[in-house]
Design a protein around this nucleic acid. Structure first.
Lengths: 152, 152
DNA sequence: TATTGTTATACTCTATAACTATA
DNA sequence: TATAGTTATAGAGTATAACAATA
């Protein structure tokens, strides 16, 4: 019989677009919940996140990453410093500049709890073959389609 | 020979989490760009979006969907009405209430251009077999894992 | 001179509370 | 009384411009 069913790139693009829309919606909802309950704005959270993954970061770097003006970064870092979530440390190599670091308390807010049970639940209905297909497909997307993406 | 390589749910959850992170990052970046260039805030855009898909919508509905107070909706809708992106129409069934509709100009801003060329480019390296596997996997996720999600 | 970052100020967005009009 | 929405006001977040300290 063979496979008369033809999948073309147009179909894949359509399916991908719709999938990203749905997957993102779920993820964004969980993040929003996390931020509301911790009384963090999105940009405050992003600063914690970037500082965490960069293991220390200057104002200028934050301004570039977040597409905000330096003055806004000063305001936001002030607000985080008051809550003892970050500290400014002098940069010995350039005395104009400070490096922003996470405190222990800041570190605790960076991780959005994944709700592991819910994640597991998502894949509950899948059999072993389906799990394997999915896993291969996801690895394929990451290696051949998403390319150099690496955002924290 | 068989397939000795075992994929378990833990691996699938891990791969899925990472994939969503990367896919969302790309999508969010494009949306942010769209909004910046159109001088729309995220909530202004969300209002256009909801009003579009609901084909007209009351303030209360918007407040619920966006988790904002009624006064904030008034402010945002005012700002959109001044730019002639939406109109308030009296609701004949309840004279306290207005229905918010998109104008032609508003409609133009709702669609975030998908950058079709870039999307196509993403799947450029895939052969026919890979395209088919991907397509099936994406349909599988939507039908068996994401469930009832339907967000606009 | 150029760069890093802060301060002063104004504008946008959001919440709270008091209010109007209608149900 | 309750509900849909607005107005007035205060506080958070962001941008612009002027500035200080350092490169």
């Amino acid at each position: 019989m063979g496979n008369e069913f033809r999948v073309d790139r147009e179909m894949v693009v359509g399916a991908y677009t719709e999938l990203v829309r749905q997957m993102s919606a779920k993820r964004i909802r969980r993040l929003a919940e996390h931020l509301r309950s911790r009384e963090l704005s999105l940009n405050q959270y992003s600063i914690l996140n970037i500082v965490h993954y960069e293991e220390g970061c200057s104002s200028i770097q934050l301004a570039n990453r977040l597409q905000l003006k330096a003055a806004s970064i000063t305001y936001l870092v002030d607000s985080l410093e008051k809550r003892k979530l970050v500290t400014r440390v002098e940069n010995p190599e350039d005395r104009r500049s400070h490096t922003i670091h996470l405190t222990e308390e800041g570190l605790e807010l960076v991780c959005v709890p994944e709700n592991h049970a819910e994640m597991f639940g998502m894949f509950e209905q899948l059999g072993q073959d389906e799990l394997e297909m999915l896993y291969l497909a996801m690895r394929l997307i990451r290696s051949k389609c998403l390319g150099e993406e690496q955002e924290h």
